[in-house]
Design a protein around this nucleic acid. Structure first.
Lengths: 227, 227
DNA sequence: CGTTAACTTGACCAGTGTCAAGGAACGTGG
DNA sequence: CCACGTTCCTTGACACTGGTCAAGTTAACG
């Protein structure tokens, strides 16, 4: 189940800009790519944080486990998202590819050296961490105080926003993944989606269960009860 | 219920070091103090973030509300803790004094100016944000996947750790505050504490309900089910 | 096309929430 | 220092949301 990086993934000179960084000095740093098959681990919790990652294609889940196997997914990482950025020197989540996924990597050490010199890069690191913090804060409210229907509505809205906002979403993750993200069981997620379907608020595209149309974004937002 | 700062709280030249910052340039910046009565608001959600705060004495709760009044406390801030540090320009939580509280303040702008010049200060800001992120990540696991007894055990352990770790804690917050922090009701918190008491794992000091003795830290840790 | 994994739905159950009552602690003013 | 009112806390009875278990269906994939 483990897929380790065996070849040193340090080819292809490239720019920090590709990781969403802007910099006045804008030095060329080494970037490379790596692919993970569906279901494989990218890094484990408490493992040394050697790289920072950016999803090129695919999707990734970051989660923590309790000793008896209960799982809490802290975030999904979609195309373009950066993940695995740690300030301490080990990862605080396990990261797995949800589907076949290609990521760009940058050595963490490289990034840190640049950040020490370039205040713009340093500021970008702080911004990314702040964005992660804000997401976690909002998610605490969801996990602590929202009902199952509110959680699922919030999830659909979040995914729509992050996947183009076109009102049609193709979810890469299973009902179980959604459940572990929302602090529910997969059955409860399924029932909530059915309920939203009955209410005419969402629809399923074609024959599949993972393509969802937001028929009534307004009602979704009302159910979500934001703030 | 609102207590606004009416006098400009900018007296007493002091050092960044007092806010836990170390710096090579270590410039003198303006610091001042302010006191809040029990139950008063320090700042509101979405309010402009003009100051960063450090608890000198007392305790503070940071929370978000849903429109129907459900509350999620994201963190408690105890003596020495820094809070209200935002990267964006408005606060993401409401902060209230739990008991009569004195805080030190520093203008956010001042801090930012120094951070731009001094990479050590900038790094401290990143460290503080990372610590907040880590706490939020752990709390998501608690809110999403732990039982009521596990949550309360985790809470008692956290408070013990943060209040000296002596095994005797004097809680500043009510059962309702604890409940809103743990994503439970106050009744469930009360029942869980009674249960821990029955099991001989905690005891109550004297006549009060807010002073707790950790009689068996080991069993608490087992119930908490960490990781 | 067959096998397997994922999803839905139903019946039942358990853990937490709700509502209510009573008691303990705390603050206030006499 | 005491009496009173208020707030906080505990406990019980009951309700209900969401979890568990199980069966059947649908979709995905070799």
């Amino acid at each position: 189940m483990f897929v380790r990086i065996t070849t040193d993934p340090t080819r292809r000179p490239n720019s920090l800009r590709d990781l969403g960084m802007t910099s006045c000095s804008n030095p060329t740093v080494s970037l490379s790519e790596f692919s993970y098959k569906k279901g494989t681990e990218i890094y484990g919790e408490k493992e040394a944080a050697e790289y920072v990652y950016q999803v090129k294609t695919g999707a990734v889940r970051s989660y923590k486990l309790l000793s008896d196997g209960r799982r809490q997914i802290g975030a999904f990482h979609l195309a373009g998202d950066i993940f695995g950025l740690e300030n301490g020197d080990s990862h605080r989540f396990t990261a797995e590819a949800i589907v076949d996924t290609t990521v760009r990597l940058i050595r963490r050490q490289t990034l840190e050296l640049v950040a020490d010199i370039d205040p713009v890069v340093a500021n970008n690191l702080l911004n990314m961490t702040t964005n992660n913090l804000q997401h976690a804060e909002d998610h605490m409210l969801l996990l602590g105080r929202k009902t199952s229907l509110e959680r699922v509505a919030a999830f659909v809205l979040e995914m729509d926003q992050r996947l183009t906002g076109a009102g049609v979403i193709a979810l890469p993750m299973s009902r179980r993944d959604i459940a572990d993200y929302l602090g529910l069981t997969l059955e409860t997620v399924s029932r909530a989606l059915s309920r939203l379907h009955e209410l005419g608020i969402i629809a399923f595209l074609g024959t599949t269960q993972r393509q969802i149309v937001l028929s009534d974004r307004q009602k979704l937002a009302i159910i979500d009860l934001q703030g």
